[in-house]
Design a protein around this nucleic acid. Sequence first.
RNA 1: GUCCCCAUCGUCUAGAGGCCUAGGACACCAGGUUUUCAUCCUGGUAACAGGGGUUCGAAUCCCCUUGGGGAUGCCA
Length: 538
Amino acid sequence: MSNSSRDKIRVRFAPSPTGKVHIGNIRTAIFNYLFARNAGGEFIIRVEDTDLERSTQDAIDKLFECMEWLGLDYDGELFYQSKHAEKHIAAAEELISKKRAYRPKQKVAGEKVPVLFRIPWDTDNNPLVQVVGDVEIVVHSEEEITISSSGISYAQVSKKRKPIPTAAALAGFHHLKIVDADENILFDLDDKIEAILENNESFSVTGAAKFAFERREVFFEDIIKGRLAKPLDTMKDLVIVRSDGSPVFHLANVIDDATQEVTHIIRGDDHVENTYRHLFIFQALEKEAPQYGHMPMIVNHQGKPLSKRDGDAFVGDFRDKGFLASALFNYLAFLGWSPGDEREKMSKNELIEAFSIERVLSSPAKFDGAKLANINGHYIAELATANFAEKIANFAKETERVEFTNWAESNSDQFCKVAELMQMRTKMLSDIDSWGYFYNSTIKYNEKDLKKTIKPELIPLLENLKAKLTNLASFADMEIDKALRETETESDLPEGRLNRPFRVVITGSGSGADLVTSAAIIGKDKVIARLENICKGA
RNA sequence: GUCCCCAUCGUCUAGAGGCCUAGGACACCAGGUUUUCAUCCUGGUAACAGGGGUUCGAAUCCCCUUGGGGAUGCCA
């Protein structure tokens, strides 16, 4: 398979549509995407919907919505794993005929049995396997040991001397000698291996004290983590076809990766242990295995993997909360990776340009919403004003903020002014929820600010201000400012003293955007009405 | 239990044996700019998990300990 079709890098994103797309999954997609695009390779999608019971069309739709939102464009035709089940089953049959897989004996006649892949016994010249050395492990002497072609079952000894049932594939126990407490050899695997493998015989041993054998390990070079290895005596034969005839993930995954000629697999850390098995399956099928890279997971503030419990771990939720796709993309790319210089804010194209798999870290990263919000603020700040206005208008519409949408559409002049005024201080699109004072006839007062700021002795001044504002011919920034200053002067107040009270009166809160501009945008009628309301109520 | 992986400020990270008195960013604190608010600017607090080696020299290499995570499904 070393033809030209393999010269081109091809990676895949292989989500299983059993729920909403998780932030961790989409980060994996982003890294794959960046890797492929950086190398001028292909980024393809495979929908792993073999678990028909839990897969839903809705989840698939949401997935593509999120990918489009983030700008994760993919190559080629969509590949639905469920449509290739025949190929998977055929591969299983091929493995059986090659004696690389088997069906276990039925316990009762007519019982449906699965197909197991055999961890290969003959590993003498296997490039995947290396000899580690001779080892001994202690076994619990009261438990019976059984040895058959499907593996060895025995019991390890816990600290409290209790038996811990353990099963392992035969392959891990070359030159196994089972001995009792007096070092008498109870069983020598070298003598029996042919009978076990060829004639399917099985043996049992009692009263054993320990195993002595040559440990071998399966290993591979991970493009992120370096050399990774696992002792064969800790591996078990694995189910590749269920008793009901459906193919299992391990089989389907390998077959599809071979079919789609995937060259590199970048996936979560949690798949490391699967990789050893997948490598064996590729080998048994005589297919070229891809390169693997395992990236660290993202964890929450407690250091636990992000889960559904964290609530905000769904990609769509980030959009609904008012994050920009570009900001999320940027932030996620920097979780477990950095360009090595001091850049922090990078566009998709800059990320593609700078990405290198070697710079991916292998330690897990905590998700920090505050930093995301900060980045988001920067992205919002640099939007052209018109673009910002359009974004929030769309956001309001998509998230069904009806009042806001009605206002924005019927008062587009005012809306544009507000957008221009508020852009610099907007961290998330959902901040528009606090813009109500610009257009609502009644406003909510922050009780604390109100109490602290509006003292009874200020009421006459506000009355005075109201009178001045009422007489204003043009309700413009400068005029409002002048009225404010005059009111202060007439009462011997220092300049600016009335700013905060006035702000609380017209916006309901002690902090906000530029005061007189805000007042001008809110408009004469509403400002006067709010002044009146406060003066009356006090 | 067993196997595997990981370990630098609170967080994301820079760091490839001497450029490290450990750099940047977020967060936090203080000051300045702003007649108000925010932005912004300046400054500050803050880390190599612990212990052994190797070396003239260790955040960096090795070992152990500790802590965290993952795997151990007829889920993916």
